[in-house]
Design a protein around this nucleic acid. Structure first.
Lengths: 348, 348
DNA sequence: GAATTTTCCGGGAACGATTGCGTAAATAAA
DNA sequence: TTTATTTACGCAATCGTTCCCGGAAAATTC
C-alpha cells in the first residue's frame, strides 16, 4: 500500500521549506543562510549549507521568476536554423546568454509572416525578458512588433532590421559586401551581371542591391531592371528561384554572371543552373552571400561574401542584456555595423 | 514628477487582480470565469471575458507553472544545430511540441562531455518537464543522466542512445543503412573499402560499423582493422579526420573507397581528400551518412545514407509528451526503429 | 409558507522563494 | 545597574494563479 503510493508519486524537488523543517529553522533563515546574509550566524550558515548540499538543493527558478518578475529567458526569431548563417548567429547568442544565466528560446519563422506573428505572440505569452529578431522576408506589417516594443519589451534587431522601430540594431555593411562581390565579378571581366535578390521588403535587400548597382555604375554600366529578380520567400521555395533564373537565362543577351544576395539564394541558383546543365562559372559565373561551410566543396568553387555571424549574435545579445538589465529606460540606441569578408576558394 | 515616475516604470502586464478590481469581483470569480467554470453565471462570464479580451489579458505562465509544478518546457540536447541532420530533427521536435503548448529549449554539446554535463545540469535547474537527448560522441560517463532519470525526469533518447537507461528510444536502422551503403560500393566494383567512423562510445558507431563489416563478409571479404578509423570527436575537429584519412591513404595497397559513418565525417573526408587533390570517386570513392541539402551540389556527387530526421524528431517528442502527461509511471518502454534511404545523385 | 436545493460568488490557503519589519537575547556603553 | 546597541532569528506579505470551502440569495419542492 505504502509502496504503491510511492511508486505513483512523481518526483518532487527539495524546497527551502523542507530544509527549514528538517533543521527546525524558519524559511527566512534558510533563505538568508543560502544567500550568505550577514544576519545569519556562521554556525547556522554552515548547518544549512551542508544540509542543502547534501540534498543537492536547487532554488526553484520558477518561484524566483515569479518573485522577480523576470523569466531569465530571451526569445530569438530567425528564418530557419537549418541555415549556416543563422545557426552561427545562434551559437554567438548562446555563448553570451548562457554566460549570464539566460535561457534562449529559439524559434523559426520559415520566412512566413503568419508563422512569425504566431511565434511572436507565443514568445510574448511565455513572458520572455527580451527579444532578438531577424524578421522574415515576408514581413510587411510591423503592428505587432511595434506594440510589443511600445509595451516595453526590450528588442534588438540583427541582420534584417526594420527602420521605424527605434532600438539597438546589429547589421553588416551590406552595401559594401555586395559592392565587393560585384566588383570581383567585374574585375574578372564579366559585364552583364544579373542579380537574384531577396524580398524587396527587407532592408538588407535594398542595401545589397544598392551595392550591386553602385559597383556596376563604377564601371559605367547601367543597371538593367530586367536583370534584377526578387524572391519574396527568399529562396525558401525553390521554384521561386527557378522562375527567377529561368527568366534571366531567357534574356538576350544572356547574363554572364549572377550575384545572389543571400545564402539560400546562392545555393538555390547553383541548384537551378546545375539542373539546366549550365556550367559555373564557364557559361554563367556565380557569386553571392553565404556562410555555408560546404562552399569549398561545391562543384564550382564560389567566391562568396561571408558575414561575421557568430560575432553578430554575440554583439546583439550583449546589447539586449544591457537593455534588460538597465535600471532606467534606455534612450539612445545604437546601430552596430560589422564588416563582411570576400572569400575566394584560393584564400580559404 | 508624475510623468517622470511613469517614464521610469517598466511595463507590467495586466493580471487577474486588475480585472477583479476593475469589475468589482473577486480573483476567484475572474479566474473561474476565464476558465469557463459552470459556477459562474453567463452574465458575469461575458463581462469578464470581454474586459479581458479588451486588455489582451494573458495568464502569467510563470505563476501557472509554479502552481502546477510544470514548466511546460522540454530540453533538447544535440551535438550541434549547425548540422542538417540535427536541425531537421529540431524542426520535427518543434512541430509537435509547439502544437501541444510546450516550449523547446535547445542546447548543444559540441561533442564535448563537460559541456554536455553543464548543459544537462543547467536544463535540470531550469526545471524542464522532460528531456530529448542524443548524447555527445565524447560521453563515456552516464552518472548524471542516470541520476536524473532515476529522480523521475522523463527522458527520450534519439539517434545516439545509451543502452543501460531504460526509457523510450527513437533510432534508425543503422546496421541496415551502413550495410546498404557498403553494398552499393561493392556493387560498383570497389573491394578495398575503408571506414571512417565516429567515436567507439556511440552505439550508432558500433551498429554502423557492424553493417559495414557484414556487407564485406557477404562478399567474402575479411574486414581489416587497419581500414577502420575512429574519430573520438565525431569529426568536430577536422584534424582528427585528417589523421584518419592520412593513415588510410598511406596503407599499401590504398583503399579504393571510404564509407563514413556520419554527416560531419562524410564532408570531413571530402575536405581532406580535396586537399590532397585525390579525385572522388575516381581515385577513391566516398559514401556515407548525410542529411545535408547541399550534397547534390558537391563537386563529387555522393551517394549517401539519408535519415528521416524530421520524423525522428516528431516521434521522439510524441513519446516524451506521453511520458510527461501520463498520470501513472510508464513501465514498458519502446524503441522505435525508422528506416534510412540510400540516395544517389541520379534518383534525387 | 417553510424547507430544501441550486446557483453564484468571495475568502483564503497554496505553489517556492525573497525581504521588510519586529523582537528577544546578548553585548556594549553610560 | 541602567540604557543603548548589536546579533540572530521569525512572522508575514508578496509575486499571479488555482481551487477547496463556506455561505447568501434565489429557485425549487412539498
Amino acid at each position: 500500500m505504502k509502496a504503491h503510493a510511492v511508486k505513483e508519486m512523481k518526483y518532487k524537488a527539495t524546497t527551502i521549506k523542507d530544509i527549514a523543517k528538517a533543521l527546525n529553522l524558519s524559511t527566512s533563515t534558510v533563505s538568508r543562510a543560502l544567500r550568505d546574509s550577514h544576519e545569519i550566524s556562521a554556525a547556522t550558515k554552515q548547518v544549512v549549507l551542508e544540509y542543502a548540499a547534501r540534498l543537492n538543493f536547487q532554488p526553484n527558478p520558477i518561484a524566483l521568476s515569479l518573485k522577480e518578475r523576470k523569466s531569465h529567458s530571451i526569445g530569438v526569431i530567425v528564418a530557419e536554423i537549418a541555415n549556416s548563417f543563422f545557426s552561427q548567429i545562434i551559437n554567438g547568442i548562446e555563448s553570451v546568454a548562457n554566460e549570464q544565466g539566460y535561457t534562449v528560446i529559439i524559434s523559426q519563422s520559415h520566412e512566413n509572416f503568419e508563422k512569425e506573428v504566431r511565434t511572436l505572440q507565443y514568445l510574448a505569452s511565455r513572458s520572455i525578458d527580451g527579444l532578438l529578431i531577424s524578421v522574415s522576408s515576408a514581413t510587411n506589417d510591423l503592428q505587432q512588433l511595434k506594440s510589443l516594443h511600445q509595451s516595453g519589451l526590450p528588442i534588438v534587431f540583427f541582420d534584417r532590421t526594420v527602420e521605424d522601430i527605434n532600438t539597438h540594431k546589429v547589421v553588416v555593411d551590406n552595401y559594401q559586401g555586395a559592392y565587393n562581390a560585384t566588383q570581383h565579378l567585374l574585375e574578372q571581366g564579366y559585364r552583364r551581371i544579373a542579380c537574384v535578390a531577396n524580398s524587396e521588403h527587407l532592408n538588407i535587400t535594398r542595401e545589397r542591391v544598392g551595392g550591386y548597382m553602385a559597383a556596376l555604375q563604377q564601371y559605367k554600366l547601367k543597371p538593367d531592371p530586367k536583370m534584377i529578380k526578387y524572391c519574396f520567400h527568399g529562396g525558401m521555395l525553390l521554384n521561386e528561384v527557378e522562375t527567377a533564373v529561368n527568366e534571366l537565362i531567357k534574356l538576350k543577351p544572356k547574363p554572364e554572371a549572377i550575384f545572389a544576395t543571400s545564402d539560400k539564394l546562392t545555393t538555390g541558383c547553383m541548384r537551378i543552373l546545375k539542373r539546366h546543365k549550365i556550367a559555373v562559372p564557364k557559361t554563367i559565373a556565380l557569386t553571392g552571400f553565404s556562410n555555408s561551410e560546404l562552399i569549398e566543396l561545391l562543384h564550382a568553387p564560389l567566391t562568396v561574401v561571408q558575414q561575421p555571424a557568430f560575432e553578430m549574435g554575440q554583439v546583439a545579445t550583449e546589447l539586449l542584456l544591457q537593455l534588460i538589465e538597465s535600471k532606467r529606460p534606455v534612450k539612445d540606441f545604437k546601430t552596430i555595423k560589422l564588416q563582411t569578408r570576400l572569400v575566394s576558394p584560393e584564400n580559404k
